[in-house]
Amino acid sequence: MLVTKISELPGHQNPIFTIEPSQKAGIIFTAGNDKGVVEWSLARMEFIKVMFPVRTSVYALHCVPGKPLMAVGERSGEIGIFDFLEQKIIARLQHHQLPVFDLKSAPEKDELLAASEDGTVSVWSLSDFKLVYRFPVAADTVRVIAVAPTTNLVAFGCKDSMISVYNLLDYTLVCRLPGHTLPVTSLQFSPDERYLLSGSRDAQLKIWNVAGMNLHESIPAHLFTIYDIKFHPTLPFFATASRDKSIKLWSAEDFKLRRTISREKGYDIHRLSINKIAWDPARGYLVSVGDDKLVMTWEIDPEE
């Protein structure tokens, strides 16, 4: 693989915790320990504007597929709903008293799921923004959510090192997957939903067979916490990002390492923890954010 750094965008004054592609091609949003959610252009590689202010640090952003909405999960536990057409916050969902760490939607059900430090998941209607359901998942923090809409599964990664898999239709427990030794910090279903990938503070990347809910492979992927896992939108590979200040690119077919993006390998990458990554569907760029307050864009040529 040939990896080329396209841009390095400053602007944030504090660490960036999350990044999310817009429903509109070429636009991304970032947020963190700053006072607002920021909009960037990947076409021009530049800052556009601060979309709106926030009251506390933002840990999660989620642009709802098929709707002009973005959900914002804050440290306070509040979830803001921003309407792109009205260009304002149209609802504030107040239920959790502790931070909301992840947000995902179930499009077929028109619902929004929120994972919190209080150990529960809340389910909200995307029609009227009312609380539909709430259920306990762990005794402590639920850190991350992954949704598999075709197989009707939703997985939650927890601070107690467990992965809890639920039925997406009625939110009944399917199974719990032990294996990690420290908190689970990243989860992602493969595009064909055959595999569930998990990353942890134990630096292990685990691949689970969805059909049998059993461990397929365990890989010592990084030196420190794996904070994110993201599959390329069209090509058979995925990326992992870590507190060890590196991004690694892997084959989605045999789970072999294809490339390491790190300072040790000669790349001008983040100097502090890489907290989140995202693929730009329009151009195939990989975008990374971290504690160094920078937004970096990478071009990946898998054929090199």
Rank of each mutant, 00 (worst) to 15 (best):
C158R: 12
S246G: 13
W208L: 04
L173S: 14
G157E: 06
D228L: 07
Y171K: 10
P191I: 10
H232Y: 05
Y171G: 07
N209F: 03
H216T: 00
M213N: 08
A211C: 01
I145L: 13
N214C: 02
I226Q: 02
H232R: 06
S164E: 12
P149E: 14
L235S: 12
D170M: 12
S198T: 00
V174F: 09
R143N: 12
S161M: 10
E193N: 06
M162S: 15
F156E: 07
A221Y: 01
G179L: 15
A239H: 06
L205V: 06
H216C: 00
D160H: 10
T141W: 05
P220M: 00
N209D: 01
I226Y: 02
V144N: 12
D170Y: 09
F238H: 12
K230W: 01
P178K: 11
C175K: 14
D228K: 07
S246V: 05
V142G: 05
F189H: 13
K230L: 09
D140P: 02
L223G: 08
L235I: 06
F189V: 09
P191H: 09
A241F: 09
F224M: 03
G212V: 00
Y166C: 14
A138K: 03
H222K: 03
T172A: 14
I145E: 08
A221Q: 02
H222I: 04
C175A: 15
S186P: 09
L153E: 12
V165F: 12
L168R: 11
D160L: 14
K245A: 12
N214A: 05
S198L: 07
L223T: 04
K230M: 10
T185F: 08
F189G: 14
S190F: 07
Q204A: 01
Q188E: 05
A148K: 02
D192R: 12
K245C: 15
H216G: 00
T181F: 13
V154W: 05
L196G: 06
A148W: 02
V154L: 11
G157K: 09
W208Y: 01
V144G: 08
I247E: 14
T141I: 12
A155G: 10
A241N: 08
A203I: 00
V137E: 04
V147P: 07
K245Q: 15
N209T: 00
S218T: 02
C158V: 15
K245G: 07
L197T: 01
D202Q: 04
T141C: 06
V210S: 03
S190G: 07
A146C: 06
L173F: 13
R176E: 15
P236W: 05
N214H: 03
S242C: 12
D160Y: 07
L223K: 01
T225N: 08
N152D: 15
